[in-house]
């Protein structure tokens, strides 16, 4: 099964804490990445720029409403995600706990809805 690990955290702290190595990642994240790849569980992932760079769009009655900022103003913000392969939720939760973000933020684990591709 595929799961998404959604990384939430206080982005002010997250940005301040990042020590960039030549990999462009902090040592903790680099290690976590390597572990996912070695285990054959890595399906993808991205780090997002802070919510100050976000724009939100909705269309109601054919009228587009464009707003600065993220969809929801929350104490912790979505900062990135991993897409992983795991046999079951327990295994996915293991990965979530190993994710550096669990230490200072929150990791939400959501199963992927399989879509039949044409």
């Amino acid at each position: 099964m595929q799961y998404m690990l959604l990384i939430y955290g206080d982005e002010a702290k997250m940005n301040a804490a990042t020590e960039v190595e030549d990999t462009g990642m902090s040592p903790d994240y680099h290690a976590f990445n390597q572990a996912l790849i070695k285990a054959g569980a890595m399906r993808g992932g991205e780090r997002l720029r802070p919510t100050s760079a976000a724009t939100s769009v909705r269309v109601r009655d054919q009228k587009a409403v464009i707003l600065d900022g993220p969809y929801a103003d929350t104490q912790e913000q979505l900062g990135g995600y991993y897409l992983i392969e795991a046999d079951d939720l327990d295994k996915a939760l293991e990965w979530a706990k190993a994710c550096p973000a669990a230490q200072f933020g929150t990791v939400e684990v959501r199963p992927i809805w399989p879509i039949r591709r044409q």
Binding site: T55, A64, I66, L67, D68
Partner: peptide, 11 residues
């Protein structure tokens, strides 16, 4: 103007 050009108002 922002609404017509689909750009956030503050921007």
């Amino acid at each position: 103007i922002a609404a017509a050009f689909l750009i956030p108002p503050a921007t």
